[in-house]
Amino acid sequence: MFANLPLWPDRASNMAGNVDALFIFLLILCGLMCVAIFIMILVFAAKYRRRKGVEAEQIEGSTALELTWSGVPLLIFMGIFAWGAIIYFQERTPPQDSAEIYTVAKQWMWKFQHMEGQREINELHVPVGRDVKMIMTSQDVIHSFYVPAFRIKQDVLPGRYTVAWFRATKAGTYHLFCAEYCGTSHSGMIGSVVVMEPALYEQWLSGGPAAPLPQAGKQLFMSLGCSTCHRLDTQGRGPNLANLYNHPVLLEDGRTIIADDNYIGESILNPAAKLVSGFKPIMPTFQGIISEEQLNALVAYIKSLSQPTEGEAGSRNTPAASPSGQPQTMQVQ
C-alpha cells in the first residue's frame, strides 16, 4: 500500500537526519500547541455555551498573561531560529576538500561536468561518503537544484555561480527536481541522482572520456588566445593567473576581494566589472562567445593553477578519484 503513499521521504544525505530532527521536533511542538488551543476552544465552547439566566463574566484582560504568552513563545521561537540557523550554516558551508561538479541548468535540462571529464545530462552519479560541491549556473532563467532525499535545494541563477553541497549516505537512485518555476516544461526538468558505492563509482568513472575538465579548460585557454596576455611565466598584459583562486585580489577601485568561482566567471564575461589594480580594461568580453559549459571548463582550469590551501592538501579521500589530482601536476609544467 505504501508504494503509492509514502509518508516519509528517503533519507540519503548527511543533512537529511538533521533536517528531519528539526522537522519532527517542530511537528511535536506545534502539534501540542495546536491541540492545546483546540482543546481550550472546544472546552470553552462547551462549558460556557449560552444558557438561560447565565451571563458572561466581563474580564478586561491581564497584562501578566499577555506578557507570558508573548514572552514564552518568543523564547521558544529564538530556540527554533538558532536550530534552523545551525543547520543552514552547515548547508551553506561546503567542506574545503569537496569534490566539485560543475552544473549548467537550462530550459529544461540539467548538465553536469565532472572534474574527471565525465559529462552527464539529467543524471548525476556520485559516490557514497564523499563531500560533493555543486557549482551551478544557468544558461537562461532561474532554476532550482532540488534533491528531496538529500534535503537540499539551491536556486541556479544565470550570470553567476551558486553552490550547494551534500554527502550522500545511502546508495540508490533519487529524484532530482527543478524547484523554481522556469517555463513550459518546468515539471519535465527532472532527473535522477545515482548514488553508488565508491568501488562501483570508480568503475563508472573509468568508463568515461579521458580529458579532465581543467584540461579541456586549458585547451580553450590556448585556443581563445587567453594565454597571450595571461602568461604563467611572467607578468603579461593581463594578471598572472597562477595562485589566483581563493586568494585576495586588489582591485582598481581600492577594494580587496577573494577570487572565488563567481569572481573568475564574472571576470571572463564582464572583465571591466572588477578590474585588477594596475591593469587596463583591455580584455574583451566573452559573454555570448563561450557557452556556460566552456566557461566552467575555463574556471576549472584557472582554479587548477593554484596550490590547494593549507589543510586541504592531505585530506583527499581517495587520491585516485581526486578531482584536482590531474591539475595539480599540470601546473608544475
Partner: peptide, 27 residues
C-alpha cells in the same frame, strides 16, 4: 478561522527555520 489560522501560522514557524526551509520551500 482560529483553528486554520493557527495551523497556517505554526507551519510558518517551519518555513522561517532556515535549515528546514531549504527543503520545503517551493514545494
Amino acid at each position: 478561522f482560529i483553528g486554520l489560522f493557527t495551523m497556517g501560522g505554526l507551519t510558518g514557524l517551519f518555513l522561517a527555520a532556515l535549515g528546514l526551509d531549504v527543503h520545503v520551500t517551493d514545494t
